[in-house]
Each structure stands twice: as structure tokens, then as C-alpha cells.
């Protein structure tokens, strides 16, 4: 980023470095939420529909993990992906892939816990009907996830908000490399440490606008879907 440029100049002057950072932030956080959702949606629904010894323990644990400290997740993924760590041979530390993985781990408990709650409530409503229709367990999960899709967008947004706003994991496993792993949040941290507080604040506002924008899009999509699907 050019020295002395104000945030306004950056945004409206079409600074390509800023757009690259915004793009990377979106790419990493959206991918992380998608990856986490692939695991956490079925897993949360599975937990909602089953009873087995130890289930309560897992549910409490997942609820607690919604508050996982990002730096701890970052550190764990760092140790995992480091060349000296068990997955070091992948060579993905300090790359966007590592950031996606770390953020996915961070938001997985959020999506799983909220999905379990949503699906459990819906299951209370659907249980007799689906049982009377003799729906197989796997299809129950699919049906409930699909019918809860509008509530689940909020769940995914909660995950996205957490991913897009956090700085701890991406700083540690991404390394804040200029033009490669620098995201909005790590750029803000960097500008703060350089003492350029107005630029840091400007970037912060851009990030907030970005998060609001994504939420507005999702909300719009949800409304349209609800109107069409009833």
C-alpha cells in the first residue's frame, strides 16, 4: 500500500493491493465456512437426532468450543502444519490453505452447535410425521437440513462473521505475507503497529462494510427464498 494514502483514497482510488486483500479475506473466510459446513451441518443434525452414551458430553463440549480462542487454534494448526509437525510434508504453512483450515476449525463448533439446536427444534415438530412416513435416518437428516435452510443461513453467517473478524489464527498460520496471506484483519494489525492509526481505522471500516454487505446479501437471498418456498 502506498505510504501516506488515506483509507478513502485507497477505497475510491481503486488501489489494487487493497482489492487483493479484500478478495483474499473473502476467499479465505467463505471457503473456511463452506469447508466447516460440509462437516458441521451433517454432524450437528446427527447429534440432534440421536441418543447415545456420551452424547450430552459431546454437545456440551461443542457448545463450549464455540468460544475457542483463535490464537490457540492458530497455534495448534501451526504446530500441525509446521515442517517439524505431523503434516509438515504438505508444505502449506504460511499459505491461504492453512488459513482456511485454521478458520474452518474455528467456526466448525459454532456451525455444529447452532445446527444441532436448530435441527433439534425442527425435529420435535417433524418427528411423528417423518416417522409415520417411515423415512430412513439418513434421509431425515437431509430433510431437516433442507427444511431448516433459512435458519441455517443465519448459522452460516455467524460462522462467517467469526471467521472474517478474527486475526489470531490467520496471523499465526498465514504469516501476514504481503500480497499472499495478508487479510483485512492482519493488515489492520500491521498498520496499527506501524502507528498509522487513521489507515488502520479506515481498513477497519472497509472490513465492517464488507461484513455488513455479505450479511445483507444473505438476508436478501433468505427473504426471496422464504417468499418462494413458504
Amino acid at each position: 500500500m502506498p505510504d501516506g494514502a488515506s483509507a478513502l483514497q485507497l477505497v475510491f482510488g481503486g488501489d489494487p493491493a487493497l482489492y487483493a486483500i479484500v478478495g483474499l479475506s473473502l476467499y479465505v473466510s467463505v471457503s473456511a465456512v463452506a469447508l466447516a459446513a460440509l462437516v458441521a451441518l451433517p454432524w450437528g443434525a446427527f447429534l440432534a437426532l440421536t441418543h447415545f452414551p456420551g452424547r450430552t458430553f459431546i454437545v456440551v463440549l461443542i457448545n463450549a468450543f464455540m468460544g475457542l480462542p483463535p490464537v490457540v487454534v492458530g497455534l495448534a494448526v501451526y504446530l500441525l502444519l509446521s515442517r517439524s509437525g505431523p503434516l509438515g510434508s504438505l508444505g502449506i504453512l504460511f499459505t491461504p490453505k492453512a488459513m482456511i483450515l485454521a478458520q474452518a476449525l474455528l467456526v466448525m463448533p459454532i456451525i455444529a452447535a447452532l445446527t444441532r439446536q436448530t435441527i433439534e427444534d425442527l425435529w420435535a415438530e417433524y418427528r411423528e410425521e417423518l416417522t409415520a412416513l417411515r423415512v430412513t435416518p439418513a434421509r431425515r437428516v437431509a430433510t431437516l437440513l433442507w427444511d431448516a435452510r433459512f435458519s441455517l443461513t443465519t448459522t452460516l453467517l455467524a460462522g462467517f462473521g467469526r471467521a472474517a473478524a478474527e486475526v489470531g489464527t490467520v496471523m499465526i498460520v498465514g504469516g501476514n505475507i504481503d500480497g499472499f496471506t495478508r487479510t483485512m484483519t492482519t493488515a489492520i494489525a500491521l498498520e496499527t503497529s506501524k502507528g498509522d492509526l487513521p489507515l488502520a481505522m479506515g481498513l477497519g471500516l472497509v472490513l465492517i462494510v464488507l461484513i455488513v454487505g455479505v450479511n445483507a446479501l444473505a438476508w436478501g437471498a433468505r427473504r426471496i427464498g422464504e417468499v418462494r418456498a413458504g
Binding site: F46, T50, T131, T136, P137, A138, R139, A142, T143
Partner: peptide, 18 residues
């Protein structure tokens, strides 16, 4: 009515969805 999840048939999970 507790579903038995002895086996977890993933494959047909999305068979009935759109």
C-alpha cells in the same frame, strides 16, 4: 421411535433431495 444408527447409510442421504 429412537432411530437405530448402527449403520449410517451416507450414500442415500441426498437421494431424495432436489
Amino acid at each position: 421411535i429412537q432411530p437405530s444408527f448402527v449403520s449410517w447409510p451416507w450414500v442415500p442421504a441426498f437421494a431424495g433431495t432436489s
